[in-house]
Design a protein around this nucleic acid. Structure first.
Ligand SMILES: [Mn+2]
Ligand SMILES: [Mn+2]
Ligand SMILES: [Zn+2]
Ligand SMILES: [Zn+2]
Lengths: 144, 144
DNA sequence: GTTCTAATGCAAATAATTTGCATTAGCTAT
DNA sequence: ATAGCTAATGCAAATTATTTGCATTAGAAC
């Protein structure tokens, strides 16, 4: 619960509540996107008595304020959340262990531009997820 | 219900049922991916008395047999289904009217290859959706 | 037509998320 | 510090999309 978390909340007109700061802190520390349930359980495990709907509401709020981003990964049960680096990124998802790696390189180049010209659409953005098997999982990828 | 639909079903060991053929036919004719609910309602409207769970089960089956593909588009209520062209494609989604256009060009080039080498992952595939506003919707994009 | 099994209907279960409303706890101004 | 205001929370119930169990029916093969 470093102090700049409360600053970041205050800056966006959000009250600095225990749960809010805690959730943001957890996301900040996590190297992986996490589910609402994960966060909820982790808090209960540490005797932080929070309600599940508070977790959802908090995540929504943090997303609105761009402190957090919400990922919906195909075939993942529910949504995942990660601290928002504000950088454009993509995700590499291991189909074996479900580990998710962020990719900062965007292979689209100026494709959006080209597409805009060709289709006369106003392009707003894109979402690219890559699926595969991580080094540890590729060994067993063709078994069960 | 052209005859080659019953052929396609038979070919994959599926019984040629009225509902199944109908759903596959609807998907084949549609220029847009459609939801299970759409299909269900359209059938009811034409007095084809089908059960909602049958629609879901049918879609699952058709997906398994690669006759249909299932799309989960971010912020779309539920899944959408389209006749499977078996071609690699991406989707351009209008954030205004929710119209979906298929794109046959893939801007990734040999990025998967590069990524495989760099990460030592076994790449299985990718999913790319582009978001924007179609010509009709861009006019009103900045209003309500 | 009989038989066998896959497909269907129906109702109930799930899973993830959202909502309404009463209560509480942060902030702000005294 | 304290009172007052409003946003945040807890709790239980509602929603939405989808799935499942089980009894019944209807294709396909003979
Ligand atoms: Mn990109
Ligand atoms: Mn592609
Ligand atoms: Zn893995
Ligand atoms: Zn549009």
């Amino acid at each position: 619960m470093s102090d700049n978390i409360s600053e970041e909340l205050k800056k966006r007109g959000l009250k600095n509540t225990k749960h809010r700061a805690e959730i943001l802190d957890m996301l900040k520390r996590s190297d992986q996107p996490v589910s609402a349930e994960q966060l909820f359980k982790d808090m209960l495990d540490r005797n932080i008595n929070v309600n599940f709907s508070t977790v959802y509401r908090t995540l929504d709020t943090l997303c609105e304020k761009d402190l957090v981003s919400k990922l919906t990964i195909e075939s993942e049960g529910g949504a995942l959340y990660e601290f928002n680096s504000t950088m454009h990124k993509h995700h590499l998802i291991c189909l074996g262990c479900r580990k998710i790696i962020s990719l900062d390189y965007c292979p689209l180049g100026n494709y959006e531009q080209t597409l805009a010209e060709k289709t006369d659409y106003l392009i707003a953005g894109h979402k690219l997820d890559i699926y595969g098997y991580c080094p540890e999982c590729r060994k067993t990828a063709h078994e069960g």
